[in-house]
């Protein structure tokens, strides 16, 4: 299973970026192999619909779940359609968020928890 964590940095000890669509990078953690890699979020450069573009990119990478702070209505609809689970309220570093997720301490989003256009 592949889990993407939104971040501004490049490794496990980087801070989580709570904004999904406009985050700089994702750390993609593969629970089967225990390995992680970094991908640039090209979606954030979209002048329109960054959340949708980001969801498209995550879907193309075969991601199964995403961990972030906030998700807006369009990104939520898009991730849901792509069958990607969304865990919100992440804080601290990538490593800490992943740990919280593994301990079942992050909420799975049932709806958007941010307004549209929040991801400036």
């Amino acid at each position: 299973m592949k889990i993407a964590i939104s971040t501004q940095g490049e490794n496990q000890s980087s801070e989580v970026n709570p904004r999904l669509g406009r985050c700089e990078r994702f750390i993609i953690h593969d629970t089967d192999t225990g390995k992680s890699n970094v991908v640039e979020n090209g979606g954030r450069l979209s002048s329109s619909g960054a959340g949708v573009a980001t969801a498209k990119m995550l879907a193309d990478l075969g991601v199964n779940a995403v961990i972030t702070g906030f998700v807006g209505p369009k990104a939520f609809a898009a991730l849901e359609a792509a069958g990607i689970k969304i865990f919100i309220g992440a804080q601290g570093t990538v490593e800490q968020s992943l740990k919280l997720y593994q301990d079942n301490k992050l909420d799975e989003a049932q709806s958007a928890n941010a307004g549209a256009h929040s991801g400036i």
Binding site: S48, G49, A50, A59, K74, A78, A81
Partner: peptide
Amino acid sequence: SDVCVFNAIALFDKIILTFDDL
């Protein structure tokens, strides 16, 4: 989904979503 530069229409798996306000 590929041609829309505004990300107002997008294909996910087998579902096409449209975002009117984009």
